[in-house]
Nucleic acid binder design. Structure first.
Length: 893
RNA sequence: GCGGACGUGGUGGAACCGGUAGACACACGGGACUUAAAAUCCCGAGACGGCAACGUCGUGCGGGUUCGAGUCCCGCCGUCCGCACCA
């Protein structure tokens, strides 16, 4: 015997070639077979794969291989989310064309993915930056335009006044452009948008049907859509305080000469008697009108606009307001007016861009009121007098009261519940009129806004329309698609290369033939990723989708990706699939939801290291430091200088913190199976996994151990195909039970994506097998052969190369990847006896081994006979005995 | 700021539907093999007290429901993710 160590890197290349030569993972659309579509979120081609990819794709691959062995026709494709900013940034920095940069990255990453041994059908590969992909996206866009699902509207962008360019939110740092350092300004411009709001209620309702999605993702989407029922209500502005409306001088008859009212949306009309101010967005028409004659207000509004467009930034900034001097008249009291403020935290995009503030019952309002000395009048309080005092004290202390209760300080509403007060206010105001219209109307409002898809960048899918001075917006005719990106764009300057290209945008109008210009905005890259899963079902079709293939393969049976996509990518894809249905590109099988099951995996994290003596910190790669000692005494030194290094916190692997481990290093040194196994071991897949050296060597050791176990089986166990003995001794039966239980459990756990538990079960089976090699007994040789084959087959989806190697060593000349999943023998899965815990008053005192089928009375009697129970009872009589069959006996005294 | 999640030994984690907390692995300690090391194999181990049998405590903190709570409820603390132009 004395087999050599298993040389993973070398054997893995061999098996990858075998799979490739045999086209093992090529998939055909075959309606006669049950299908399973396994998809992992496709990567952005950044240049190299990272450990997050390794984890994501390993999980999908295990499931794909398992489902294949269970007889499914498995679709497991891969592609590239290839448009996006980094390519353009790289072009600017190193003078390479985005296309070259991207395709080089794709080639490099594809080689890396191949070295992982993933069971992918590479014949279906798509890259979203390829005209053969985006031509179809342009077709869908034009159909969406025709269906009024795509339209133009004004929207805000981050404008860098120095670079004269639009910035992404991530390019705005502390309100300044990342390159120029200039203060960023909000700028409004005409932009393309998708009418996702046409489906708001459907997107919300259908969440309920997504049973195989994580509850938290559904909840996040629900909150994102943000349905709220409230009141649209109009407040009259006090005479003489309101400014003239902008544009009224030019004689537009629709607009009144002065702003005489302010419309707001509120979900809390019940708190109307607690109103103490109005707040409007800096871009609200009333604010703009007031700013026209108030320089200070104009300056304040400008300051607000310099915050950029990010909601997170706007809402975390210090709450600031400016009293416009305008006064609004309370709807229930003509003598009661409240001041109208322009406030930096009011968003023009939500509701009407105006609110009334009721400080006592809204935390943000109470902070604002406190800062500006506005009244704080509680109008809801707990019914219970004692609790009421504490609640009111808290309000006086600056903490808004948000719970239910009864109305106080509210005239005709006093004593009602807030819900009743809501109805009473709505009813009364619906009946009253202001300028001939009802003062208020019930309204369902959503937080969800239409999806702005315009990007002022080169490396994206061109929006296929032409602007004509006479005809307006003209779609590019289908025969002229794709609208290709020009190859000879320049990237040396900031700004949109399409816009400044000397010839590209100048075309004849497709409708009238006059000189016209192309749209120079390109599409948000989220559009590309909103339908790639549909394209994978027929990647060579000359229409965006092939209905027969789509009907067969959709929906995706298991989608796997990062939690960071919980809202945007997934919501956009859900919308887009509906839009494709409406425009005749999908949905023909009456499937509205693209992803039947979703799994969000955790991140890969690692310790950080930095030079001890430098501030700001200079980060070090894990390969640049050496360690000694352990536990509290663990120390790191920088190898190059011998200077001490600081071991920092464990964080998400990132280039900036340099806490990266290169998958290539692991694969070339330890093998892909080792990396795969480590990714699946220990940490639950939805949680973060900490990458450690110890974990790698543990995985590597296990590979060798399996290899030795197979070797031992070949030397000592029964030969391949030996007939089953008539009888098994206790050792053999125990091993067989262990093997079949493991087989059963591993299958269940893979199906449930609980890979870490499946791994633990494989360890247990290995332990049982190792132990068995020191024993002897009737039929043990046969049982060892059986258990070894089960071990190899059960770990095949996780360590596919090692699996093939072991399968061959066990004497088979077939491919493990093509073997059916073995069937566990039901009789071996249940034991005849069970161990039942015995408690006295809920405290475990003993345990009882008893027949599985023992009657409760029998179990009770046996438990009461136990010495330990008698001792714990201390002579007291049991009051009650609870028997949970096969689990527990609890004696209560 | 708003929304969402997570928290179990020295470490990663397991525990089906409320029923023996700590499976499995790492690290650690002891032993076998070896000239030696590596590798491998065997044994031990939540904490505290005790020679031991055993007892007490124990799932971030504080309450509650229950015969019984890691699991359910309420209130805190801490960490992480998303926030619409990063992908």
């Amino acid at each position: 015997m004395a087999t050599e160590r298993y040389n993973a890197p070398e054997r893995e290349q061999h098996w990858q070639k075998v799979w490739e030569t045999n086209s093992t993972f090529l998939t055909r659309t075959d309606p006669a077979r049950p299908k399973c579509y396994v998809l992992e979120m496709f990567p952005y081609p950044s240049g190299r794969i990272h450990m997050g990819h390794v984890r994501n794709y390993t999980m999908g691959d295990v499931l794909a291989r398992f489902k294949r062995s269970k007889g499914f026709n498995v679709l497991h494709p891969m592609g590239w989310d290839a448009f996006g900013m980094p390519a353009e940034n790289a072009a600017m920095e190193r003078k390479s064309h985005p296309r070259e940069w991207t395709y080089q990255n794709i080639a490099a990453m594809k080689a890396q993915l191949k070295s992982m041994g993933l069971s992918l059908d590479w014949s279906r590969e798509v890259a979203t930056c390829d005209p053969s992909y985006y031509v179809h996206q342009q077709r869908v866009f034009l159909d969406m335009l025709a269906a009024d699902l795509a339209y133009r509207r004004k929207a805000k962008v981050n404008w860098d006044p120095v670079d004269q360019t639009v910035l992404a939110n991530e390019q705005v740092i502390d309100g300044r452009g990342w390159r120029s350092g200039a203060l960023v300004e909000q700028q409004e411009r005409e932009q393309w948008a998708f009418r996702i709001t046409r489906y708001t209620q459907d997107l919300l309702d259908a969440l309920g049907t997504l049973e195989k999605w994580p509850e938290k993702v559904r909840l996040m989407q629900e909150n994102w859509i943000g349905r709220s029922e409230g009141l649209m209500m109009r407040w009259r502005l006090a005479d003489g305080t309101a400014p003239a409306a902008i544009g009224s001088a030019s004689g537009a008859h629709t607009a009144p000469a002065v702003h005489d009212e302010l419309e707001i949306f509120t979900t809390r009309p019940d708190t109307l008697y607690g109103a103490s101010f109005m707040a409007i967005a800096p871009d609200h028409p009333l604010a703009k009108a007031a700013a026209a004659k108030d320089a200070k207000l104009a300056a304040f509004a400008d300051e607000c606009r310099r915050m950029g467009t990010s909601v997170a930034e706007i809402e975390t900034a210090e709450k600031k307001g400016y009293d416009t001097g305008i006064r609004a008249v309370h709807p229930f009291d003509p003598n009661w007016t409240v001041p109208v403020y322009v406030a930096n935290f009011i968003l023009m995009d939500y509701g009407t861009g105006a609110i009334f503030g009721c400080p006592a019952h809204d935390q943000r309002d109470i902070e604002f009121a406190t800062a500006y000395g506005l009244p704080i009048v509680p109008v809801v309080a707990p019914k219970d007098a004692g609790k009421r005092a504490t609640a009111l004290a808290k309000v006086a202390d600056g903490a808004a009261f948000l719970d239910d209760g009864v109305m106080i300080n509210s005239q005709f509403l006093d004593g009602l519940t807030p819900a009743e007060a809501f109805d009473a206010v709505a009813k009364r105001l619906e009946g009253e009129t202001l300028s001939g219209r009802p003062v208020a109307q019930r309204k369902v409002n959503y937080r969800l806004r239409d999806w702005g898809i315009s990007r002022q960048r080169y490396w994206g899918c061109p929006i296929p329309v032409v602007h004509c001075g006479d005809c307006g917006i003209v779609p590019v005719p289908a025969k002229d698609l794709p609208v290709r990106l020009p190859d000879d764009a320049t990237f040396d300057l900031p700004g949109n290369p399409l816009d400044r290209h000397p010839t590209w945008k100048h075309v004849a109008c497709p409708a009238c033939g006059k000189a016209a210009t192309r749209e120079t905005d390109t599409m948000d890259t989220f559009v590309d990723s909103s339908w790639y899963f549909a394209r994978f079902t027929a990647p060579d079709a000359d229409t965006p989708t092939d209905k027969a293939a789509l009907d067969y393969w959709m929906p995706v049976d298991q989608y796997i990706g990062g939690i960071e996509h919980a809202i945007l990518h997934l919501l956009y894809s859900r919308f887009f699939y509906r839009a494709m249905g409406e425009t005749g590109h999908a949905g023909h099988a009456n499937i509205r939801e693209p992803f039947a099951a979703l799994f969000t995996q955790g991140m890969v994290v690692h310790e950080t290291y930095k030079r001890a003596d430098i501030d700001p910190p200079q980060w070090l790669l894990p390969t640049e430091v050496a360690f000694e000692g352990e536990g509290d005494k663990r120390r790191a030194t920088e190898i190059a200088t011998g200077k001490p290094a600081v071991i920092g916190s464990i964080e998400k692997m990132s280039k900036s913190k340099k806490n990266l481990v290169d998958p290539d290093d692991i694969i070339t040194n330890y093998g892909a199976d080792c990396a795969r196994w480590f990714m699946l071991s220990d940490s639950p897949p939805e949680r973060d996994v900490i990458w450690t050296e110890a974990g790698v060597s543990s995985a590597s050791r296990f590979m060798q151990r399996v290899w030795r176990l197979v070797d031992q089986a070949v030397e000592k166990a029964a030969p391949k195909g030996a007939s089953m003995p008539a009888a098994f001794g206790p050792e053999a039966t125990a091993l067989r039970r262990a093997a079949h239980k493991a087989l059963d459990q591993v299958g269940r756990n893979i199906e449930a994506l609980r890979f870490n538990v499946a791994v633990a079960q494989l360890y247990e089976l290995s332990n049982a097998l190792t132990e068995s090699h020191q024993k002897a007994g009737d039929g043990l040789g046969w049982a060892q052969r059986e258990a070894t084959e089960i071990l190899v087959q059960a770990l095949g989806p996780m360590m596919p190369h090692l699996g093939e190697e072991c399968w061959a060593r066990l004497g088979y000349n077939t491919l493990l990847a093509e073997q059916p999943w073995p069937k566990a023998e039901a009789a071996l899965l249940v034991d005849d006896t069970v161990v039942v815990a015995v408690q006295v008053n809920g405290k475990r005192r003993d345990e009882l081994t008893i027949s599985r089928s023992a009657a409760p009375a029998e179990v009770e009697a046996a438990a009461l006979k136990l010495e330990s129970v008698a001792k714990a009872l201390e002579g007291r009589q049991p009051k009650k005995v609870i028997v949970v069959p096969q689990r527990i006996v609890n004696v209560v005294v």
